Computed example of a mutant assay.
Amino acid sequence: MATIRKRGFGQWQVQVRRVGFETESATFESKIEAQEWASQIESAMVRGVHAARKVAERMKLSDLVGKFKESYAPMHYKAREDGKEAWKFQLKHIDDKLGEKTLAELDQKLVAEYRDERLKLVSGGTVRKELYLLSKVLGFAEMELGICLPGGNPVSKIRKPIEAKGRDRRLSDTEWSELEQECRKSRNTYLWPAVCIARETCMRQGEILSVKWQDVDWKRKFVFLHDTKNGEARAVPLSPMALEILKNLPRSITGNIFPIQRMTLLHAFQGALKRAKIADFRFHDLRHEGISRLAERGDFSVLDMAAVSGHKTLTMLSRYTHINAEKLADKLATTK
């Protein structure tokens, strides 16, 4: 039962007593706040989660982040040799800004303020990823640690930044010719082969650099990827051009098809772009180029393209359907 008393100007003291529980008390600036708090405490006692709620009032987010890294992350995130896992950087930003807040204090107002501050510095897509990771951490607290979040998961109660539109930058025939010329001039002999493989296979840069010679099935004409962005292994079909490029590459003692570091490839690629005077083009755009070429053929369905690119959902590929609209119209005209 809750007892609420006025204690001087702007002070309302509330006490909650219930058999089998310690007396809980707190002071608020308004009677309404005192009543709401008492209602939450009594409800938690009735539902048998009061003890878990008290943990939320004592535990800081930084402590939960530590438990998340120790217990959850090793089983759900594959470690990289260079230690550059994106989730670690995202979690650090969250911890730096909100780590000193207790789980009970972490409400939608604080999370919304975090969102708005981060949007001043980084893209909406980056902020979305950080918010979803925060939601996952808080979900870990509820589901696996049995901690009751007084107001529920605050991330679910705020607006998320709008997902950025996919890039549509493609090179003209002239730009491709100039890029090839500058890539072939590069001191990095792996640069042009890597560019061609990215375009021919639609693989991501990290996938290209991680694949080994033992993963190539020459007979069945595919390369098997063990480590992908979405966490699922997949087989990537190799076109005749891709096969020819691989056959002409030297074998490294490391076992990697491309025995170079990510930043080494990136700097070589950026240098070639600069010399070719090509602006607003990234290595990841080669993946978009490859998928676009598949769509332009007209004989690749969205499911076929997903099998090549590794997209888990077809939503990301829907923007490519307009590319072969003319071919689809011709097909409709010949359908009886």
Rank of each mutant, 00 (worst) to 15 (best):
K185L: 13
L191C: 07
L246D: 05
I158E: 06
N230H: 09
T264K: 10
W192D: 01
T228R: 09
E244V: 03
D227K: 15
K157E: 15
I253N: 06
F222P: 05
S210D: 15
V155M: 05
D168G: 11
Q261I: 03
L266F: 15
N188E: 07
G152Y: 12
V216T: 09
G151V: 10
A235V: 01
A242T: 02
F269S: 04
S177N: 12
W176N: 11
R234G: 08
D168W: 03
T174M: 06
G255M: 01
L191H: 07
G166M: 02
D168H: 11
A164C: 00
R167V: 09
H267V: 08
V223E: 06
D215C: 10
G151N: 14
A164T: 06
L191Q: 07
L209K: 02
P150A: 14
K229C: 09
K219H: 13
I253C: 00
E178P: 00
P150R: 15
P250V: 00
K229H: 11
S186G: 06
Q214Y: 02
G255T: 01
S156L: 13
L209D: 00
S239W: 12
I260R: 08
E200G: 01
A268M: 03
G151I: 07
Y190N: 04
T201V: 07
E178K: 13
A233T: 12
A235F: 02
L145V: 10
A268I: 02
L209A: 01
G231D: 08
K229T: 10
P150I: 14
T174Q: 11
K185F: 06
A242H: 04
R167I: 11
G255L: 01
R170T: 08
L171R: 03
L265K: 05
C183L: 07
I260Q: 09
S186C: 07
E244H: 13
P237S: 11
W213M: 03
G152C: 12
G231W: 07
G166P: 00
I245F: 04
P237G: 11
H226I: 09
T264S: 14
Q205H: 02
M241E: 15
P237D: 11
Q214L: 11
G231H: 06
C148F: 15
A164L: 02
W213L: 03
T228M: 13
E175L: 07
H267L: 12
A233D: 12
